[in-house]
């Protein structure tokens, strides 16, 4: 469904991503793990169109979307839950969700579905989002992304700054989305959490893929080596 092909992204003189390739299929969850500065967020931001790549391409269901601006990519069926949630402080909970419909993409997700997914939300729909806890804000950010009826959902550091129980509850909604055929690409610093939820994972180090495979096949030692770059940097390895 989503194919990223040899993507290279630079921030000024800094090479943030070097020839990253990945694919995510419908109903599949791919986790990108890696340390701070490995390029995880840059990868998601490039897929939604906030960074223009130096080289490489991004395709959605075979269509090349590399040159499209972010709002046009949302219309094509990609949505991002950004790092730090980025809700609109002067809008209410419901207004934040409704902005997610701006692309006009038709589909099964509307206010009622989001309120069903997060049952507390309907009662607090008129509150400003600054009154919500971090976990509740994260839920609104996910709801806003779902309102765009994406085929591919990008999740950037959902667990950041949240209590462990809250993290489990937030990740608890993912299986329901994936079961309906949504493709999920998530970036996560909490490796254990990421490997628990994902079908496949890819480990980044300094903008390159150092390890990829299925969570069941990867040993802790291999992941640690790929995560910290202990195994030398001879190119992508394979856990399988």
């Amino acid at each position: 469904m989503l194919e990223v092909d040899h993507l290279t992204v630079r921030h000024g003189y800094l090479q943030a991503l070097t020839e990253i390739s990945l694919t995510v299929a419908p109903g599949e969850t791919l986790a990108i793990i890696g340390a701070n500065g490995a390029g995880k967020s840059t990868l998601l931001r490039s897929i939604i169109g906030l960074h223009q790549p130096r080289a490489g391409s991004i395709r959605l269901e075979g269509r090349d979307i590399t040159g499209l601006p972010p709002h046009a990519r949302v219309r094509e069926g990609i949505a991002l839950v950004p790092e730090g949630r980025r809700l609109f402080p002067s809008l209410s909970v419901e207004e934040n969700l409704l902005v997610g419909q701006a692309s006009g993409r038709p589909g099964g997700y509307g206010l009622d579905v989001v309120y069903h997914l997060f049952s507390w939300m309907a009662d607090r729909r008129w509150e400003p989002t600054v009154h919500l806890s971090g976990g509740e804000q994260q839920a609104v950010a996910i709801g806003r992304a779902l309102m765009a009826n994406p085929k591919v959902l990008l999740l950037d550091e959902l667990s950041l700054g949240l209590a462990p129980t809250m993290v489990r509850r937030i990740y608890g909604v993912l299986p329901e989305l994936v079961a309906k055929g949504m493709a999920v690409l998530l970036v996560e610093q909490d490796v254990t959490q990421a490997l628990r939820i994902a079908n496949r994972f890819q480990c980044l180090l300094e903008g390159r893929t150092t390890l990829e495979g299925k969570p069941a096949d990867a040993t802790t030692a291999k992941i640690e080596a790929a995560y910290f770059g202990l195994a030398g940097r001879s190119g992508p390895g394979s856990a399988a």
Binding site: I48, G49, L50, P69, P70, H71, A72, V74, R75, A79, L80, P82, R86, L87, F88, P89, S90, L91, E95, N96, L98, V99, G100, Q101, A102, S103, G104, R105, R144, A145, A148
Partner: peptide, 24 residues
């Protein structure tokens, strides 16, 4: 209105509204 909402959202955070699907 939806446009009014989009204007307020874009005034708050232009980048966030663009990834929510708003043509800022």
């Amino acid at each position: 209105t939806a446009m009014g909402r989009a204007i307020r959202a874009s005034a708050d955070d232009q980048e966030a509204s663009s990834i929510a699907g708003v043509d800022t």
